[in-house]
Design a binder for these strands. Structure first.
Lengths: 201, 201
DNA sequence: CTTCAAAAATGAACCGACCCCATCCTGAAT
DNA sequence: ATTCAGGATGGGGTCGGTTCATTTTTGAAG
């Protein structure tokens, strides 16, 4: 049966993740050693590697948590978007951004993004890319949901790709600069959405 | 005087860079060790660190070469843009992309981008960000140069930021997938530019 | 020439991620 | 209770980037 053994296993994985999260909030990703995580979770270093193939995979598990919740939030917006393209984009994308620091720090996002780019083809990168694609699809869905308010005959798919590319890059720029405030990110994006909505109306 | 000493120093730096470039084209960035670069340049490992503070700084020197040339190309396009916004964007951005693999490989771009994101505040990251800003400014300049062909009253600055964000992200996506062809990147971007130009006309 | 302080080169040593493996522990099936 | 397989253990090892104390080279002054 899958009883105690599996339960212990799940508990151990949870404990490792929880401790890793705590340590990553106290110090930077780089400053936390696998040995530290193991010690905090009261297991041996080897055991951590039994659950997570690399330090990056520990991070990925934390990122997934965050992104799954962001996707849920986004689905709600797409299902009932506010009036007006600019407002709808503000709601969706602002929602992404505002939730993004619930569990993770800017440093953790930086390391996650750097890993996806620097190590493509790894488990980490593939899963991360999958999450990204689901976000991209949500943006496209929102445009489609709002198409009644747009000039007819527009090529929505390339526009959605452009919007997603731009929001993704803006987020990367945001986490890259430790001092940048969430408010200024939101303001900048609102300006973009307003300009775009004006052009597409 | 500045004679022999400085000359030798410059020569050695060049030799290290040239050998690094050659090795990076034979194997991946990660697979090339600092020791290999040192051996190829016929100096000791420590000496390489005398010239470049980190492995990333070696890469940065190569990236700068590439980007400086791209910026020159771009300046020519901005000075005399082709008729039509879509055509102008195709020329500028297509020019960026097509030159980007002259000296560097996709792998080198990936590592460079990953480093800027993962290690902000380092010399590497700051210089890279500076190059990026000059590209961003060029896109804004092109929009201004084309403003006669656009609907009046548009907020050009946010639009330029959005276009730049999207082209940057598209490039990152391009280098992330080893199999993706330059032609398909160019095609995708042409679709975006056409859609945008239609909306802004 | 010789001298010498500064500049530069050197390579051994350090550190942390990751791997390996001989050994021990523990839950489940008999 | 006993057996046994799947994990856990943790010490030792590899690897590569980076550091640093030490040695060598340099070029200008005496």
């Amino acid at each position: 049966m899958a009883g105690l053994r599996a339960k212990h296993k799940a508990e151990r994985a949870d404990r490792i993740l929880a401790q890793a999260m705590a340590l990553f909030h106290e110090a930077s990703f780089d400053a936390v050693r696998m040995e530290d995580i193991a010690a905090a979770a009261e297991v041996s270093t080897g055991t951590v590697y039994n659950y997570f193939a690399t330090k990056g995979d520990v991070l990925l598990a934390l990122v997934s948590l965050e992104v799954e919740e962001v996707l849920e939030l986004g689905a709600a917006v797409v299902a009932a978007p506010p009036e007006g393209l600019a407002e709808a984009l503000d709601a969706l994308i602002g929602g992404y951004y505002e939730h993004s620091l619930t569990y993770l720090t800017k440093d953790l996002w930086r390391q996650a993004i750097a890993l996806t780019i620097g190590a493509p083809g790894t488990r980490f990168s593939l899963i991360y890319a999958g999450l990204d694609d689901r976000l991209r699809a949500q943006v496209a869905d929102l445009l489609i949901a709002c198409r009644g308010q747009l000039r007819p005959g527009l090529a929505l798919a390339p526009l959605a790709d452009m919007i997603f590319g731009s929001l993704n890059q803006a987020f990367t720029d945001f986490v890259r600069v430790e001092e940048m405030e969430m408010a200024s990110l939101l303001t900048a994006m609102r300006a973009r959405h307003a300009a775009l909505a004006q052009a597409l109306a």
